[in-house]
Design a protein around this nucleic acid. Structure first.
Length: 261
DNA sequence: AACTAAGCCAACCGCATCCTG
DNA sequence: GCAGGATGCGGTTGGCTTAGT
């Protein structure tokens, strides 16, 4: 049966926004606030689809947007966050005040990918390109050297990685077949750093983020995501449960991954 | 100066998820 | 619990700009 279109396509403008359209949209949002994008175009006197208005506001007209080049610090933060979160551009944008998901996505595709390639790192897996070419007998098992490289990149403690890796190796035996089936390409979501405010959408987002975090075994999924051995996850979990009486989500996880957020 | 290729980014599209009645 | 509407997200595209020949 199919969904009804979000707007009457025959009567909407497409393509680049004019100054007049921008002004109308800004004036309307300043007067009435964000929200109800579907009815906004009509109310604002715009011949645009609600989605288009939302996108224009979020990516271009919002007053808190930071225009201009990305700093080196932002570059590195994006790289680390991408290693952690994958293509979750909106979550990454949540950590970069004044930047939009679209902007970061574009910047990633045009600049950072190239930068990582030049460093010999595969931008999608964040692993050394050499290791991708050297697919050994088991595509899911990596050498200790490779794990150490990961540890370097994410600022892990080498000895901890080494001991965990050794434990995994010694544990391999009968479960090696089983392990080969484990999909290590798990991804997680982290809570947005911005504190919740009265905005309905932020509240909703915070609720979603909480659910995601609670439903994930934080250290475990994170380690899987960055490619560390499963036992390393358990190791982290135990260690932090012991020291802190429970893994502190968010801050602790960021810290474990070397993110100064 | 004219043409082409590459780079860049705003905007669109379709799907996923959430919300509401 | 379910269906349909609203919103958000990520992938992709089209067109403009810049660099190279």
């Amino acid at each position: 049966m199919g969904r009804s279109p979000c707007c009457e396509k025959a009567h909407t403008n497409k393509g680049a926004w004019t100054k007049e359209e921008d002004d109308r949209l800004i004036a309307h949002i300043q007067a009435h606030g964000e929200g109800c994008w579907r009815s906004l175009p009509k109310a604002a006197g715009l011949l645009r689809c609600g989605k288009s208005c939302r996108l224009r506001w979020i990516n271009y007209l919002r007053p808190d947007l930071k225009r201009g080049n990305f700093s080196d610090e932002e570059d590195e933060l994006i790289i680390k966050l991408h290693a952690l979160l994958g293509n979750k551009w909106s979550l990454i944008a949540g950590r970069l005040p004044g930047r939009t998901d679209n902007e970061i996505k574009n910047y990633w595709n045009t600049h950072i990918k190239r930068k990582l390639f030049s460093r010999g790192i595969d931008p999608s897996s964040h692993r050394p390109i050499n290791s991708l070419n050297n697919k050994s007998s088991s595509s899911n098992s990596r050498s200790l050297k490779q794990e150490i490289h990961m540890a370097d990149f994410f600022q892990y403690d080498h000895s901890e990685v080494t001991s965990c890796f050794e434990r995994v190796a010694s544990d391999a035996g009968s479960r090696s077949e089983e392990r080969a089936d484990i999909n290590l390409d798990l991804s997680i979501s982290l809570p947005c750093s911005s504190p919740p405010d009265d905005n309905k959408n932020n509240d909703r987002k915070a609720a979603i983020d909480s659910k995601e975090i609670i439903s994930n075994s934080t250290a475990g999924k994170m380690c899987c995501h960055v490619g560390l051995p499963v036992n390393y996850a358990a190791c982290c979990e135990n260690r932090y449960n012991g020291e802190n009486g429970g893994l502190q989500r968010g801050i602790t996880c960021d810290h474990r991954l070397g993110l100064d957020l």
